[in-house]
Design a protein around this nucleic acid. Structure first.
Lengths: 349, 349
DNA sequence: CCTCGCTTTTGGAACGATCCAAATGTACCC
DNA sequence: GGGTACATTTGGATCGTTCCAAAAGCGAGG
């Protein structure tokens, strides 16, 4: 039979060519399924590919063709189930399309974000999906990735000079409408003193959610001046800690619209510690619909954002842009919907 | 001033060389921080790199050097917080080491697993971290990745001919010991009729956890024959549905060691539906210590597996292997520790 | 036998980096 | 001035693929 596959070294297209007495060019045509090659030749080559256990070197091909077959996915917090679902959705679509996902997790650090972006850029991705770390600066990101590469900003706006990056596409959640829905729901339940609890004013999503909250309060003629707004780090721990802020004023609120589910769950714990029963003595809503929201005690009324769908959508948006960079940049606002559970009770008698 | 950077095309090392009148070789040396170059030259070149906005093409370098700077991370379920944390840990270490993570999510489908592995292989990763889908076959995986590439099997054993893949490294949790600890804890609480609830016998981790459970029961002299073992899909939904299986026999158990946290949380719901209060009328334990375990009602006694640390460890193991393939394959068993919370009460009077 | 048209195959130059052996420059000493 | 040692720079081949223009093969028709 023919020669044996090379040892140690990877099998290349030249090995195959040599193995069945055709030129490299012909083997290349076979690999790409070109109709030019004679079917006998094709069969012989394919047999040899199998025999030697050839694996395609896409990096070499990409180099020659000046193309890329990867998309970078840079997330501020992979460990957060919301982003994990999102990543799964992205990878699902990219995988189906023959792209590979280059993952980067920044752990909410802007410095690491720049480092990660720089490192990923060296691998020449066709595009980037970026959920920026809190406080990310437009200019610095731009100088890390250059102005050539398609970038889809997900979930958060960056700060700084937005004109510099107005060629980026954007995919955001409808934060404002979501918070408005939640607030309107609590108002409909009969609450009049409703707080907005948690999140950082530094983050665009927090500002948007606050805006939705304020909008609903004003429409209902509830004095915005008296509204309590408490800032906290958007995790469970700080949400527990800041609970007392809610009850400092003379007339304490009877309900709270929370920045997200983690904060809401933390607040539940804090309420318990004050002897209040969430869902009975105090109403609250979350945002995200993380898995825990359905099983907390009481189950949490929240806004479903279907992160996996958003991931699929993000992948599709960036692929579109990669395939055709010419259309003007697009901002997409994904709808969210209110999921009423038991935590948003009417005010306690 | 010098020439302007090229338009449309990416800046290459040759552009830099031309831009400051040195050879490509010199620029290459500068890029790699070689001590050979004169510091004047270095300064000039570095200035030019900045001026033209050069980005290193690692794919080209890897091609020439026959090296790789990526590691493939293939997970059976990215959306699961356990694996999301794990992935974050992996990416953290890889990022620090200059490697990039090629992500692949298989959604627990063996077919997709093979497709994903094939696609990732074309990008020539230096190694693979694989948490196999349930029912993955050793031979088929081997033929997808070849026998040259370092592979670290995480979390689960594969089925089929293990001799074929005895060169793989392995990182598993100490499932057996974990389940034994949980069972012993319930026994110490005074329970004698304890069930093992959930999981599939098809999965190696389930078999190991059952073994730990059985071991503890036997050591305590509790009749293993009477032991109830219920199989179910390891998610919340099916765990709710199979709850009644526990109470079919004449003497129902008063406690259950659950396959994992998701199952335990599902079982809690199921118990509620039967009018039983988990943590009061019925004791149960989980496995994994997912975020929800701490905030469920009651908080769940479970086994902490610190998935982020496991991710870091996995990354370190595969990097070691990539750097030196010669040492014999290694199997690592990561410790787990019991976290006692309120769900594992003594038997109800 | 030659020419034409069609299918099929092919050599060699890319892609953007690195490697290597050899060339060049510079300083110092006899 | 020539030789030696050392520091610095360099051309050209190479990695594994694709592109391109041109060559080869082949049957039919005159």
């Amino acid at each position: 039979m023919g020669n044996t596959p090379p040892v140690g070294r990877k099998v290349t297209l030249s090995d195959i060519a040599a193995g069945c007495d055709v030129s490299r060019a012909t083997v290349s045509l076979v690999l790409r399924g070109s109709p030019l090659v004679n079917k006998h030749t094709r069969a012989r080559v394919e047999e040899e590919l199998r025999r030697q256990g050839y694996v395609y070197n896409r990096a070499a091909a990409n180099l020659r063709r000046r193309t890329s077959s990867s998309i970078a996915l840079v997330l501020n917090d992979l460990a957060n189930p919301f982003f994990a679902e999102f990543a799964a959705g992205v990878d699902e679509i990219l995988g189906d399309t023959g792209f590979v996902t280059l993952l980067g997790s920044t752990g909410e650090s802007t410095e690491r974000e720049l480092a990660v972006l720089g490192s990923l850029m060296e691998h020449g991705p066709a595009g980037i999906i970026l959920s920026p770390a809190e406080g990310s600066d437009a200019q610095r990101i731009l100088s890390a990735v250059g102005s050539q590469i398609p970038l889809l900003l997900f979930n958060r706006e960056v700060s700084g000079d937005l004109a510099a990056c107005d060629h980026w596409d954007r995919l955001f959640l409808d934060n404002q409408r979501g918070a408005r829905l939640a607030t309107e729901h609590l108002i409909a339940q009969g609450h009049t003193r409703i707080a907005f609890y948690g999140g950082h004013l530094g983050s665009s999503s927090c500002r948007q959610r606050r805006a939705g909250y304020t909008e609903a309060m004003q429409s209902a003629g509830l004095s915005a001046d008296a509204n309590v707004m408490v800032e906290c780090v958007p995790n469970r721990l700080d949400a527990v800690a800041q609970c007392e802020q809610l009850f400092k004023g003379k007339s304490a609120p009877t309900a709270a619209v929370c920045y997200n589910d983690a904060v809401a769950l933390g607040l539940m714990l804090g309420l318990h510690q004050r002897g209040l029963q969430p869902g009975t003595d105090f109403a609250l809503t979350g945002f995200d619909d993380i898995a825990e929201a359905a099983v907390s005690a009481p189950p949490l009324t929240t806004l479903a954002v279907t992160p996996r769908d958003r991931g699929r959508q993000a992948a599709e948006l960036i692929l579109e842009r990669v395939r055709d960079p010419s259309p003007p940049p697009r901002q997409t606002i994904a709808p969210v919907h209110l999921l009423v559970r038991d935590s948003s009770c009417p005010p306690h008698a």
